[in-house]
Each structure stands twice: as structure tokens, then as C-alpha cells.
Amino acid sequence: MPDSLKLRDYLRVFRVMFKIGLFTFGGGYAMLPQMSAEFAERCKWLKPEEITDIFAVAQSLPGVVAVNASMLTGYRLGGRKCAFVAALGSTLPSFLALIFVTLGYQAFIENRYIAGAMAGVRAAVAGTLAATVFKLGKTTLNDRWGWRLFALALPLTLLSVNPVWIILGGMAAGLARRAVTKRIK
């Protein structure tokens, strides 16, 4: 992305984020497969590990994780104004969908086609997210240190320890390792 954004660049960020918002069912991590496909694979605006960083920070801050992640992505791509453009882009589809659905929501809840569609969508979201862990893992789990931390964190997350503590734990481990290697030198 260029340093000074033109209107065309903002529109492009808005359009990509709008598409991501439209096909994200479930907040937070459900966005990841599309973020990684659009920004790391298709336009190569971000490196895979940058997406990992963005989600780690988004998850550690108060606020809605998906909005935090959109803001951070936008900021990384083009500064503060771009952050708002990205956040509005990713949330506008849900806003518009909810406005219409709320008008006749009883029929929506009871509609059997929508229930069937949601069963398919939920299964697909789990599958696409599994693929994304695989991809992001390839860039971050490339040495013994990484695998050890991963192996420590996994049982804790499955025991539903708050993700914020796990991220802070990883941070402490990274800082401790630096302190130790510095002292040895």
C-alpha cells in the first residue's frame, strides 16, 4: 500500500472489508480465514505473521474483537483514517442485514431453509478456520521454542483459561527468553 492513500485506496480497503464482513459468521476468529486469504494471499498487503500479531493484540484489548482487528488492519494499511474505513466496512454488512431481519425476525428464526443454511455455514466456518490454523502455524511454529509454547498453551485454552492470560503468558515467555539469552552473552 502507498504511504499517502487516495480515495481509490480507501474504497478498495472498504470493499475488501465489506466482503469479509458479509461472509463472517460468528465474531473474532471467524474473520481470520478471510483476512488471511484476502490480505496475505491475494493482495499480499500483509505477511501471515502480521495477521497473527493483529489478532493477538485485538484479542488482548477491551472492545469487540472483530472491530479491534479491523481497526488494527486498517491502521497498518493506511493509518488512522483507514482504520475507521476498515471497521465501518467490516461491520456495515451486519448492520444492514440486522435492520432487515429485525423487521420480520419470527419468520426468520422459524424458517427451515435458513436453519439448514446455518448448519452448513457453521460446519464450513469450523473447516475454514482449521485450514487457517494450519497456514498461520506454518509461519509461527518453525522451531522447538514455538512448538513448546504451542504445546503449553493448547491444554490451557481447551480448559477455557481466558485467552488474554494465555497471550500475556506468551508475552512473558518471550521477554524472559530475551533476558536470559542477554545474560548468557
Partner: peptide
Amino acid sequence: SGIRPVVPALILAAV
């Protein structure tokens, strides 16, 4: 460097 390896674990738990 400490945070990056734990993120896949968090996503895996979400999966």
C-alpha cells in the same frame, strides 16, 4: 516471539 506460537493454540481451541 512468545505471543505468535500461542495464537494457533487459541484458534485451535475455537475450532
